[in-house]
Amino acid sequence: MWSLAVPNAQPVISCRNVWKLYGPKPQAYFAALTAGTSFEQMRGDGYISAVRDVSLDIAKGEMLVVMGLSGSGKSTLVRCLSRLIDSTAGTILIDGDDIAKMDARALIDLRRRKMGMVFQSFGLLPHRSVLDNVAFPLEMRGQDRHDRRARALEVIELVGLKGREDYFPRELSGGQQQRVGIARSLAIEPDIWFLDEPFSALDPLIRREMQDEFLRLKQILGKTSVFITHDFDEALRLADRIAIMKDGAIEQCDTPDQIVLNPATPYVAKFTEEIEKSRVIRAGTLAQAGTAEGQALSASATLHTLARQIAQDSRDLIPVAGPDGRVMGTLNRAAALDILFGAAQ
């Protein structure tokens, strides 16, 4: 398995059977709820289950992308994780602490020390300059003016806005505004980074550029991140793991190539149909136990990048080597070519 997750360490975020119901009396309704009540039945009763029985573990340094169409509950889920809204049922542990049990002070403290969040419509304070916006979380926790300024300038430089410290949000383009949002979320050096559709409001070209920027930051910072998007391509590009949501429930949660190769439900399959799979699937994913001689393919490379090599290779089974250089298995050339040339299913 190709994953950054370290299996045995304690997960940074761990949630079990989390529910969020909207309606007149959600708690009472939930208590009386029988297993297997469908989304439509609940809606008939006047309740919307924005988050249904979600269980997830997110490991340190992992990048989980929650993907779903609008109304699928992905934004609600991330707000439950950050406790911007209280979940109806279930437990959410952050570094082993149950956030539902925290009082206001502890919650504020948690946010001041550990969490950063980026918002779809930026959420910048219109009356503050770039510098003051970025320094805002530091100001909230009472850091002194000089430290604040130094740290804010540091992150502003990191997101590439150096020289625009004194601008006001309305004087910046959408992409620049979101860079401010990102800088602000990073100012306190959070352990956990929430990103709620950060690039959805941007033009396609800018979005691409910001995704590259984001990958760069991720590389440098290696933070535990939860990234929300409705764009499947974006999810595939950025994710270590993807959780696909529909009607508040997680349909499938797996690595991008597993999702593309083995969609768990027809709903997930619909997303993967149009995807050029070779750009997602890595050699390591297709590798099966066995050995072969000769030059090996890199396990972490996508089939797309290996296309020429595979096409020119004459072996039926091509060896695949892991990051340490040892051969971990063999790739069936015919299967790889099927994926590359999109054989009829």
Binding site: L84, M117, G123, L125, M140
Partner: peptide, 8 residues
């Protein structure tokens, strides 16, 4: 929300 997440 951004204010809350900034720990205000």
């Amino acid at each position: 929300e951004s204010g809350l997440m900034s720990g205000a």
